[in-house]
Design a protein around this nucleic acid. Sequence first.
DNA 1: TTAAATTATTGACATATATCAATAACTTTT
DNA 2: AAAAGTTATTGATATATGTCAATAATTTAA
Lengths: 205, 205
Amino acid sequence: MTYLPDQLQKTPGFELITCFAFLHPISEEIATFISGKSTYLSVKKGKFIRSTLDTKEKLYFIIRGCVRGFIKDEGQEITTWINGENHVVGSIRSLGLDQETEEHLQVIEDSLLIEIERQAIDEMYERFPEANIIGRKILERYYRDAEERAFLSRLPSAERRYRRFTRTRPELVGRIPMKYVASYLSMTLETLCRIRAKALQNPPL
Amino acid sequence: MTYLPDQLQKTPGFELITCFAFLHPISEEIATFISGKSTYLSVKKGKFIRSTLDTKEKLYFIIRGCVRGFIKDEGQEITTWINGENHVVGSIRSLGLDQETEEHLQVIEDSLLIEIERQAIDEMYERFPEANIIGRKILERYYRDAEERAFLSRLPSAERRYRRFTRTRPELVGRIPMKYVASYLSMTLETLCRIRAKALQNPPL
DNA sequence: TTAAATTATTGACATATATCAATAACTTTT
DNA sequence: AAAAGTTATTGATATATGTCAATAATTTAA
């Protein structure tokens, strides 16, 4: 934050610009571009982002709050990720696994977001080649996170998945409604309850 | 391939360079750099790559063959991905979820690979900023793939996971030993057998 | 080409986790 | 502050999938 020009501190989207600046020094032109494309969005707990009416893909930077992504499969919701402050969510990349499996976003805490159109990001990559350095670094991080999610959910026992979750995502423990955690960990709410009850008996060394 | 300078066709690592060139026009300097850092590696089926002796992180481009990644957890191997031709595997990014969960690579078909040190890729990003465009695009793709893996493994029924696998990875069906498929789909070999037997009865419309 | 080893299939049984249901603890709304 | 609506907990039972075991089919090695 300290090495951002002062005037940026009050410019729209400065939180996102600051986040980028941690990855790579950011030119004033890029900062101005991002600022011009950023919109603040205050979303109440429980609301879904990205109305079905709007076909444009969007990215969201979480300033405050928490968002989950889920996919509907045969009627039931499967939570595929949960993220909090300083994360980028949404169309990180044309995630579109395919048409049937469209991802939905739900805010699970009152949240303040910055919204940017996917198209604006692509334009940024075109106009400012250095922006690709930032994009690449962010994607490296998100790739690793996605790998972790893929690994976590392959652990064969519910209890191990829960333990791994508490170990790798301590910032979410106690913050997220259990039903979402259960969905994220591929187990029912009841199973998660029982595992937690058991964990309280055998105190975590 | 057509728009690659002719002399590249015979240069070490040209398969990887060609792959990159599909994403973004590649300068002769970058091509030469990659070429200089590429080593061919022929690996027999069943062998593990990345000996434990060698601490350097490496990337591998699969020219021919197939490789799986797995993590050992409480004694058992969990296959987290399986990839064939034209994929990059290995330290796409310091995947290191953490020390305990180190990823292992095993070749599951006689394979021809190009090996590059992670460090060389980082150097490439430094010296040739345009390379970040390629890196970003590759990571976008790999992020999407990792999302798919994370989703697949969260499907609550073994049969649905198998169906999704056959639908999204048709190129692997019938090619990969069932035991690896089973591990990738988070089920036992026996369960996979039974699901396949059942699938044969109810012919796939 | 046979022998040895690995991988796949099928069956019987065990078990972790899902499902269904009733209540309790919270949260939000009025 | 009470009412209404969620979300969490706990119990009883069902079921999908794991485990163990015996063979069959393939693949690899001799």
